[in-house]
Amino acid sequence: MQKAVFPNRVLPYLLLAPQVAITIVFFYWPASQALYQSMLKEDPFGLKSKFVGLQNFTQVLGNPDYLNSVRVTVVFSVSTAVLAMALALFLATAAEKVVRGKGFYRTMLIWPYAVAPAVAGLLFLFMFNPSMGTFAYLLRDAGYRWNPLLDGDQAMLLVVVAAAWKQISYNFLFFVAALQSVPRSLIEAAAIDGASSTKRFWTIVFPLIAPTTFFLLVVNTVYAFFDTFGIIDAVTGGGPAQATQTLVYKVYNDGFVNLDLGGSAAQSVILMAIVIALTAIQFRYVEKRVHYA
């Protein structure tokens, strides 16, 4: 990286100021508030609060509901990220092979990204709601006992599919760009070198788009953790019996519905730590194995 040298001592800070200000207002300030909040306990009427140190944390971590939520979040995030990325990669490789109507095909695949999470959730709810959903009707007709309102695994499946569906477009866009940047001559050289098209994909193309895959892995994990609240709220509301209550959803539920502000703040602090750790791990270990051409 090139080092810039400014003749004026104030100017560099001035140029940085807007970015720093935004980060302070929208991250450090709320984060420090959450940290402060997490050590307080409010009375039932919200009139006064007292400092309780780490008591909120010990309570949260000792709560079986919370540990269940951790498990739910792991299952949900991994499934969503894997499903969204795998399908997007599959569609992107297919889009490479389309000769006619390439632009149309791509445009259609990008549209879902423009749908708001809550709306996406509602779409899936309408399709799969046991009492009025078209697909629910078809599934039951086919003899399958479909009822995500009662069956936790089915509810999980539904929110995973809905969350992945929405993220596929985004991943697709990046994978298409990545696939296009793989030089054609490399594929041709591999073809002459006797590699079948499957083998070419896994030994040449896949390693070369690894930087994109890695980037998407980080983005998708963060997405599954944080941006799927709307979908879960619209489709299952965290239920049945907390089967789809992810950590973020539990923060909302405990804080805004059950008005346990201290406990909720403690959870969000833990969540923040988890995501920071996760991203650090990804960059430290996964990125080492990624080849940047």
Binding site: S185, L186, A190, I192, P207, L208, A210, H291
Partner: peptide, 14 residues
């Protein structure tokens, strides 16, 4: 049963 040398070499960078 041919081998080809490409203009941009087409070596596998990874």
């Amino acid at each position: 049963d041919i081998a080809m040398v490409f203009q941009n070499y087409a070596l596998y960078p990874h």
